[in-house]
């Protein structure tokens, strides 16, 4: 199966300043691929390279199996893009922009745009200059989705949207995916990626730190387990287990944190009579933050 987006040692320097370096990405059809990283990590540079706004210093990129530079026009006709630094023509109304883009794309997307605008509760009759930040963002989403593209590239799409509209956006992504689209979106907001992405790439200082399924990251999240046994149990039975550290024992109560497989813990606990068990799913955020922070 051909990857929808594929980069090979993609590198971009702006003079001496690094954009991205030796980036290797592969996004499969139908995936929602989350691109997570702090500001300045190279997320926007990657999108801009894929859209052919800027040219790689070295390496290459392919979208739909096509060369990102040579076949850019075809790629762009099949892609919906929302820039991180969104700017729309300030003196045009939402409708005029939809109409103009419609003609530029040579397909009439006005009905679909109207439907999307209703979904996002956006009035298309207003001049862009007079839109709030959130409404401008909505118009950015409308124009990205309105031609039902095969690939959506969304650079920080939810900034400035209120929570209800964010939910609607997640639903729009889900609908697009069920229609066969692939979604590549960046964010520095973790719960968002956790919520909608299948695959996550963490980028830092222009390079990928790790690419994995959201589930894999989740499995690594620190869980907190609090057992209450019928009688005190020796700490050592748990503290020797993989990924476990004992927080405290208070008489018959044992509280541990775990980043490893849960099975061994359950089996160890099963050797005793368990009166009560409380489990808290750890914050995925901690896992990601560990990647953001500088290595020790």
């Amino acid at each position: 199966m051909t990857a929808i987006v594929e980069t090979n040692d993609l590198t971009k320097f702006y003079g001496q300043t690094r954009g991205v370096e030796n980036l290797n990405l592969a996004i499969q059809p139908g995936q929602v691929f989350g691109f997570l990283g702090p500001n300045g990590a190279g997320k926007s540079t990657t999108f801009r390279l894929l859209m052919d706004f800027i040219r790689p210093t070295s390496g290459s990129a392919r979208v739909f199996g096509l060369d990102a530079q040579e076949d850019s026009r075809e790629i762009r006709s099949r892609t919906g893009f929302m820039p991180g630094d969104l700017a729309l023509y300030p003196r045009m109304t939402g409708n005029q922009i939809v109409e103009f883009f419609s003609f530029m794309r040579k397909i009439d997307v006005r009905q679909e745009a109207k439907r999307l605008a209703e979904r996002l509760d956006l009035d298309l009759g207003i001049t862009v200059r007079n839109y709030s930040t959130g409404n401008r963002q909505k118009l950015g989403l409308v124009q990205a989705f309105m031609h039902r593209p095969e690939l959506l590239m969304l650079d920080e799409p939810t900034g400035g949207l209120d929570p209800i509209i964010q939910q609607e956006f997640y639903a729009m992504v889900a609908d697009a995916v069920s229609d066969g689209a692939t979604v590549f979106l960046s964010s520095h907001v973790l719960p968002e990626v956790e919520r909608i992405a299948d695959q996550v790439a963490i980028i830092r200082d222009g390079g990928l730190v790790r690419v994995d399924e959201v589930g894999a990251f989740r499995r690594e999240a620190t869980r907190v387990l609090a057992f209450t046994f019928s009688q005190p149990v020796p700490e050592a039975e748990f503290s020797t287990l993989e990924g476990v550290s004992v927080v405290t024992t208070q008489g018959t109560k044992l509280i541990i944190t775990s980043t490893g497989p849960i099975d061994a813990i359950v089996k160890a606990a099963a050797r005793h009579e368990v009166v009560e068990l409380e489990a808290h799913e750890g914050e995925l955020e901690d896992v990601f933050l560990a990647f953001y922070e500088d290595e020790p």
Binding site: M51, R73, R76, F81, D85, A87, P90, R105, K106
Partner: peptide, 14 residues
Amino acid sequence: DSKTMDMLLSLPVS
């Protein structure tokens, strides 16, 4: 300068 070029060039136009 106003960044609308990104939007324009995201359309299928050479």
